[in-house]
Amino acid sequence: MSQTRFPLPLRPEIEFDVTAPKELGDVAKPLSFFEKLAANGAVRRGVILIVVALIWEMYARFLDRPLSFPTFLDTLEALRDGFASGIIPARLSVTLQTLVIGYFIGLTIAAVLTTVAVTSRLGMDLLSTFTAMFNPLPAIALLPLALLWFGLGRPSLVFVIVHSVLWAVALNMHSGFLSVSETLRMAGRTFGLKGLRFVFGILIPAAFPAILAGLKIGWAFAWRTLIAAELVFGVSSGQGGLGWYIFEKRNTLDTASVFAGLLTVMAVGLIIEAVIFRLIEAKTVRRWGMQRG
């Protein structure tokens, strides 16, 4: 070894004395109260909301035209009145019922289509052709046709929602199924799983991250589509939804209530996206280590 082509330099060995951690002062210094507060995302977002509300209130007072731009406090009051009189909850429940019906019909059809698609080549061609055709078509564009077929009322709304949910969910489900690893598939088959049991036992849980993404996108599409559809022709058998509430209040120039309705739409969307779907994620894909949280 001493006769290599690359002579190594001769260097002395050294040992050092290390300062004891105690003498270095506080090694783990606790953060100050404000530093901890600033690290909390909810607090930061809360501050932003308060600032926005303040600016809103000041600008509206400066503008002083309550018919086109009510103040923040007026809007809150309208919101409170809407809830106290039971109108907003009633409208909201009509909207949510329609949504749930449409959402689950859409999911069911998507599940059937995708299952057929993974078990046969014809099914796969069908699904990819249909999704390619219908996915770019905004659901709201089908509303005139829906009105023609199903008349004014809930069935038309449900039809439109089914359309908005179906393709997004089917597309995600299908790509999720395709990405299930060959090893997992073979493992499932050595257990003796076949057909539908294989789909439910292996494919669906293994593709769950993609399916959940599809559910979220489907939900977002459905919610926006439904409010828009209700705005266009909201009343179904005398019972309007949240979109209808907004439209109605605009007609009576009760602008503060229009804002209150919009705030409700935002709040519901936020709650379902940030609370319900987050909860499902925490209980499933993040717990299973399939998605980082």
Partner: peptide, 20 residues
């Protein structure tokens, strides 16, 4: 004729366990 539980298989890949 086909795969079955009388011939259980252990694969090389670590992802053969069901993560859920």
């Amino acid at each position: 004729e086909g795969p079955g539980p009388d011939r259980m298989m252990v694969f090389q890949e670590f992802d053969q366990l069901l993560p859920w």
